[in-house]
Every structure is written in structure tokens, then in C-alpha cells.
């Protein structure tokens, strides 16, 4: 048996942004597509407004944890959180990040500084071929509810050339994992996210 490399996904955000939900949608879609998938999530204390990381590997791997400089896809729901994911970013990592900052209380207390996002972009662009910022909150509001910002980012991921899952499987998985009453709005957010990615990645 020859070893086939897994597709590695790293999702980072702040507690309450829907990182676990997004990853679960991806995972169940992968299973429906007949692929093996493993996922790692964070619960408990880390959720109270702290950083939340969720990781997936789609393929033959037993462990869901991304390897150093090896992520295929990095989704950042908050831009400064990209700085906490630098160890898994490689030249081939496709990065999709939301532009909307969430300023932690440590900044208002003056014990920590919020970084200059332009500086992050400048630095990352030198090393990574694919880096895309998306105004996910604005698009989500247009779709119907700011809460769907994570689905906008998922839509952008879906539009990347190497994403291994089909749109119909993602939508079916969304139906299983999101409230029925908001499903149309979420599908709209997904599609708008895909469209936005195609626009910005040109």
C-alpha cells in the first residue's frame, strides 16, 4: 500500500464564531463522499472568547492534527489569529481569512497590542501563493444574517481549485447540521462566498 497524502485543513477563530460547526459540516460531507476523515476539536475553557482551533485531515491519516508547514487550507475567521497559525503555513497553503477584527479585552486594558493587519498580509504574501481576505461579515449581512460569516468563508473554500469535496455534499451536510429555518440564508451565504473567492482570486 503506497501512502497517499491527506488533504489538511486548519480552522482558527475566536470562541463563538462557529469553527467547530464549520469543521463538522466539512467532515460529514467528506464521509458522505466516501472519503476517510478525522477531525480534532477544542471544548471547555478554551471556548470563552479564547482562540479556538479545529483541524481536519481528509484521506488515509489516522491523526487529524496538521503537520508543520503542511496545511492545504487555512481558514481564519479573525485576521490576527493568522499569527497563531504560522507553524502550519507552507508555500502551498491556501489561506482564506475574514477581514473583521475582534479586539480582545487585553488590548483595551493596554496589556497587549492588536497587530497591523497590513503588515501580516505583506509578510505572508511573500511566502504564500494564495492569500485571500474576504469581508465575510459584510457578505453574511447581505445574505441575511451576520452569523453566517463562517459559511461565507466555507463557500470561499469550496471555490478553491484543490478543495476535495463537492458542493452538493457540503449543502446536504449543512442541512443536517444547521437550523432548518435558516438553511436558505446559509446556502445563499455559501454561494456568495464562492462567488467572492472567484472574484478576489482572479
Amino acid at each position: 500500500m503506497s501512502y497517499k497524502k491527506s488533504y489538511q485543513i486548519y480552522i482558527i477563530g475566536v470562541g463563538g464564531q462557529g469553527t467547530i460547526k464549520t469543521a463538522t459540516i466539512i467532515g460529514e460531507a467528506a464521509m458522505a463522499q466516501g472519503l476517510n476523515v478525522v477531525m480534532s476539536e477544542v471544548h471547555g475553557m478554551a471556548q470563552r472568547g479564547g482562540t479556538v482551533v479545529t483541524e481536519l485531515k481528509i484521506g488515509d491519516s489516522l491523526s487529524p492534527l496538521n503537520e508543520k508547514y503542511s496545511a492545504d487550507l487555512l481558514l481564519a475567521f479573525e485576521p490576527s489569529e493568522l499569527l497563531r497559525a504560522t507553524s502550519i503555513i507552507g508555500k502551498d497553503t491556501n489561506i482564506i481569512a475574514s477581514c473583521s477584527s475582534i479586539i480582545p479585552f487585553t488590548v483595551s486594558l493596554g496589556i497587549s497590542k492588536y497587530p497591523d493587519i497590513n503588515q501580516i498580509i505583506e509578510r505572508l504574501s511573500k511566502k504564500v501563493d494564495n492569500l485571500h481576505f474576504i469581508d465575510a461579515e459584510k457578505i453574511a449581512i447581505e445574505a441575511g444574517n451576520i452569523i453566517a460569516a463562517n459559511i461565507v468563508i466555507l463557500g470561499a473554500a469550496l471555490a478553491t481549485s484543490k478543495f476535495p469535496l463537492k458542493k452538493e455534499n457540503i449543502i446536504e451536510s449543512m442541512k443536517q447540521n444547521l437550523p432548518i429555518k435558516s438553511i436558505d440564508m446559509n446556502i445563499k451565504a455559501l454561494e456568495m462566498g464562492s462567488k467572492e473567492y472567484l472574484k478576489v482570486s482572479k
Partner: peptide
């Protein structure tokens, strides 16, 4: 791949609150 040098830009502290 060599690590991207981010030593001069750090993320804000974001402990649970």
C-alpha cells in the same frame, strides 16, 4: 519549508474571559 519570520509581529493575547 522554512518558517515565515513573524517574530516581530505577535497576535494579541486572547485568554478566555
Amino acid at each position: 519549508n522554512p518558517e515565515i519570520d513573524f517574530t516581530d509581529i505577535t497576535p494579541p493575547m486572547r485568554p478566555p474571559v
